[in-house]
């Protein structure tokens, strides 16, 4: 069984939010729900300033705090390491939203679209999102599994790879099996450039980042504006 993971290269990321839009298109998430987002922060002191982007999403933690807190069992880690929410079991208590240290979860509060009436796309796409439950990135589980059924290789073949990964225009996102030492993601994780968010946190994210290569000390405002 594979152990899916992702690597995001911050040296390549230009903060275009293409992944954010690709995820929206792939998963049809309603307004206010952005499974994949790009946070930005200004660092350095004038004139040596720089705006750095940080794409974030569910980290598919090996020890997910969201799963430990969930009273219903709606949140569960699958065998392949994907942390998912069963929208038939979730009672919308939001304990998991609060427990996730990475801000990856969203409560789907009310059904409304981007326009006055739901577009045809929204009509179809919103069917998988249940009002009153919590949603988040599922590593494009359906897409990956459909690809696997067709004999494709996730991370290599487009049809088996998460939308945010194959849509990245700088080719800064990678997906694959972390249990396979020869997969691109495993090689990148072993490259010495990889790090996880919240270093030392026991959740052990399966989304890794590659350092941007330059260092500037953090400054600017705390709210990232």
């Amino acid at each position: 069984m594979a152990r899916w993971g992702m690597v995001i290269d911050l040296a390549r990321c230009i903060g275009c939010a293409g992944c954010q839009m690709a995820c929206k298109a792939e998963n049809g998430t309603p307004p206010g729900i952005t499974w994949c987002r790009v946070e930005v922060k200004d660092i350095g002191n004038f004139p040596a300033v720089r705006r750095i982007p940080l794409p974030v999403q569910c980290m598919h933690c090996r020890e997910p705090e969201c799963e430990k807190v969930c009273p219903t069992g709606a949140t569960e880690k699958t065998e392949s390491g994907i942390v998912r929410v069963d929208s038939e079991l979730c009672m919308g208590c939001r304990a998991c939203v609060l427990a996730c240290p990475y801000g990856a979860r969203y409560f789907y509060e009310e059904k409304k679209g981007y326009y006055e009436t739901l577009s045809l796309f929204e009509e179809l796409a919103y069917k998988r999102h249940r009002v009153g439950t919590v949603t988040k990135c599922d590593f494009c589980q359906e897409r990956v599994e459909r690809g696997l059924d067709q004999g494709l290789k996730p991370g290599v073949d487009r049809e088996a790879t998460p939308a945010c990964v194959f849509n990245c225009m700088t080719k800064g996102r990678f997906f694959g099996d972390l249990d396979d030492p020869r997969s691109t993601v495993s090689l990148l994780v072993a490259s010495g450039r990889a790090f996880q968010l919240l270093p030392g946190h026991p959740s052990d994210p399966q989304v890794y980042y590659l350092t941007p290569g330059t260092t500037l000390s953090a400054g600017g405002r705390e709210d990232g504006k």
Binding site: I43, G103, A104, L197, L198, T215, A218, E222
Partner: peptide
Amino acid sequence: APVLAGNIRFLVRPG
């Protein structure tokens, strides 16, 4: 709490 990426603190917004 802000999420740490290397030595940089990001305040993540949702939820």
